[in-house]
Design a protein around this nucleic acid. Structure first.
Lengths: 184, 184
DNA sequence: CGACACATGTAACACGTTACATGATTTG
DNA sequence: CAAATCATGTAACGTGTTACATGTGTCG
């Protein structure tokens, strides 16, 4: 919000559409949330309601405090500790500890879903959008999804190795990558 | 929580330590939260308090409904739409739209931080932990961080290209990757 | 004995999210 | 004219997170 308001004062509805434009509607933003957030930002003195425009729309402007906050945001890198927990990582980490879970089944389903997501992305990208922000976000997702697939592969081979270690040294059937049935 | 309780009934404090063990303390979990979550899970009928053990500790057990929920979780891949918004992606997407922001500065700081994070990871990994869950989570982070660096590089060259497009065709000074000062 | 880990909780807060209500304006 | 878009809000809910209170056991 602050970043958008730094460009120029905007009213709520406009903020939503500008945000969607910037992120390519990848993470759609509920309009209602804009207003609640605006109220919270005003509470914290980061924005201020100002001159209503020609039509009665109330534009909010960023304050000095808001500019400082924004500059801090841009100037401070995102570190692991303020990233949200990675659900997928947790899921697999736990899956391998719970007996009866078909871990490779989980991995395979996930990889399939991830690959579909990548294809959707490619399709989106093909439906020409020359906007820079748009394409950066899309590329971000692509890099992440690619990494995810690679990680899933790594997990599978890790699993296979662990299974091989558990079984006798001479026993070389690839059981680990071929089990079926989901728990129980 | 459900995944841990599927292994065996546990009490609150134990759940915390088991979770930390599984995720390698990557995303430390506040103990208090375990109890509130446990209360909410009980409210939803997914766990049930049961037989207190030899010391007076109250163990919670997963219910049938909880098992179903858990099986659903393991059986359903994580898709983009239920992933949280990517703060870094949004940050850069907006940075390029706000005039006066030193985008390559942001990128460089982020890359530095990301690389440090990768080194921390390597160090952690070196401090021997042969636990499978642990190492899967660590690898997950490594893959993600690597992807992030690659994406940041991509962003920089994307930016440079955009800048070249803005400037005249003959004008080939590399202004885009060399600006300084953070807005204003 | 004092500090620290173990162990259980609760109150308060902030935030994201949804659903709903309401009205003006535009457009097929 | 009806439907859709524009536009502004609010109430309610769920959850993550922190801070605090409280007590027991253990170990240097």
């Amino acid at each position: 919000m602050l970043a958008l308001l730094e460009r120029e004062p905007m009213y709520g509805y406009q903020l939503r559409s500008e945000f969607d434009a910037a992120t390519g509607a990848t993470w759609p933003l509920n309009v209602g949330q804009v207003y609640t957030t605006l109220a919270r930002l005003e509470r914290d003195g980061l924005v201020a309601p100002g001159d209503p425009d020609d039509e009665g729309r109330l534009r909010y402007a960023i304050t000095e405090a808001g500019k400082a906050e924004l500059a801090g945001w841009f100037g401070t890198p995102v570190v692991s500790s303020d990233r949200p927990r990675d659900e997928l990582a947790i899921k697999l980490a736990l899956a391998v500890t719970v007996p009866g879970v078909d871990v490779s089944g989980v991995i395979q389903k996930q990889r399939a879903a991830t690959i579909v997501a990548m294809q959707d992305l490619t399709r989106l990208k093909a439906a020409g959008n020359d906007d820079l922000s748009w394409s950066l976000v899309l590329e971000s997702m692509r890099y992440q999804l690619e990494a995810e697939v690679r990680w899933l592969d790594h997990c599978e081979s890790s699993l296979a190795r662990a299974a091989r270690a558990r079984n006798g040294a001479g026993n070389t059937e690839q059981t680990a990558t071929k089990q079926t049935g989901v728990r129980r």
